[in-house]
Design a protein around this nucleic acid. Structure first.
Length: 356
DNA sequence: CACACGTGGGT
DNA sequence: TACCCAAGTGT
């Protein structure tokens, strides 16, 4: 079979498989560009199982771009709480206001114009343009890299510039120009349901017959990645200071994890600190004998770092006369009823549940 | 352009 | 346990 016929059969087989195996997902019914947009942002680096409940709550609260633009950033972050990658929420909110104010509420209809919006990169722009407006552009995400690298048994690293260009070109060659929406969603469903990272279901795969990795029994060797990850440890010592039913809380501002979210006053260190050292640090600034007690500790595993978290309860109410420690700079005393509305990181959410 | 950004699930 | 992975983007 020559290359042209092989490519044609790949596209045909993928489309046919999709017709009878596609997942029933809420944003697929109307292809409303706003709903597709929300779904694509939520599903970045996130599996459907994890993102779906967020999509349902989010679109119920903000059914259209105007509702989202009207909301405050904090309201948007609160609905995003627990999903991670919070810049997605902040960018989405900013872009919604951009669409309402600059584009009179009309979503851009081409990949080129969609790319101008905050938080929309090559993948998301192609997804919205193809799914909602039938533009013949291929989506190239982790699913597509994995599927194509296996199908062609290509050892080009998917995290290299050359590899990305190669698979992008391949995806565009294989793309159905008449049914880009179906083809792109078929590729993603294939990657999520059949050509999975571990133990792919090759027996159910519509293109298994020509899959080079399968012919070599080397599915597990693809895709190839060149970079290695190394982790650093961080130690977060949170000070829980309660005063007359109120709690000290501060908002993370720096260009760092959990930007914009709220937390307890924090002493961060590169190495593990003992309870005595924490006490000493607090006492030296407050010039008083402050005692703390360790409430609990958790471990947070991230892509590039491990965060070891300890929660200390401040025993005495000696912080009445202002900040007792640099950790309390910028901290505000908030009533428990207010805390419920603050967006907080997962570990803080867990701690608050115990306290409140 | 290498790196940071979250959380949950799998091996 | 300690990794890896998941519908990527911004800087």
């Amino acid at each position: 079979m020559d290359n042209f016929l092989k490519m044609t059969s790949f596209t045909t087989n993928i489309l046919t498989w999709y017709q009878s195996n596609q997942r029933d997902l809420p944003w697929r019914a109307e292809k409303d560009p706003y709903l597709v947009w929300i779904s694509e942002i939520i599903l970045q680096q996130t599996q459907v199982k994890q993102g779906l409940p967020y999509y349902l709550r989010f679109t119920k609260a903000f059914p259209d771009v105007y509702a989202l633009a009207r909301a405050s950033e904090q309201e948007v972050l609160k609905l995003w709480q627990g999903l991670g990658y919070y810049s997605r929420a902040r960018n989405l909110h900013a872009a919604a206001r951009d669409v309402v104010e600059r584009l009179k509420g009309q979503m851009p209809e081409t990949k080129k114009d969609l790319l101008l919006l905050k938080g929309i990169g090559p993948y998301t722009a192609a997804a919205i343009a193809s799914i909602s407006f039938n533009e013949p552009v291929a989506v190239v995400d982790g699913n597509v890299y994995r599927l194509l690298s296996r199908y062609f048994a290509s050892s080009l690293p998917i995290d290299s510039t050359e590899g990305r260009k190669h698979f992008d070109a391949l995806a565009h060659q294989l793309l159905s120009k008449s049914r880009p929406a179906d083809f792109n969603q078929a590729m993603m469903d294939m990657g999520a349901m059949i050509c999975t990272p571990a133990q792919p279901k090759c027996n159910d795969c519509p293109v298994a017959a020509e899959c080079q990795a399968r012919l070599l029994s080397q599915q597990a060797l693809f895709p190839v990645k060149s970079k290695t990850t190394r982790k650093r440890n961080r130690y977060f010592n949170y000070l829980i200071a309660e005063n007359k039913g109120q709690l000290f809380m501060s908002q993370r501002q720096k260009k760092d994890i959990w930007k914009g979210l709220y937390e307890f006053p924090l002493i961060e260190s590169e190495k593990e600190l003992t309870r005595a050292e924490i006490c000493q640090m607090v006492d030296s600034v407050s010039q008083a004998s402050m005692t703390t007690s360790l409430m609990s500790e958790t471990k947070h595993l991230l892509t590039h770092q491990n965060i070891f978290i300890r929660f200390y309860k401040i025993q005495q109410d000696l912080h009445l006369n202002g900040p007792i420690n640099r950790a309390f700079d910028g901290a505000r005393l908030l009533a428990k009823s207010e805390l419920i509305h603050l967006p907080v990181p997962k570990p803080i959410e867990t701690a608050l549940k115990r306290i409140l």
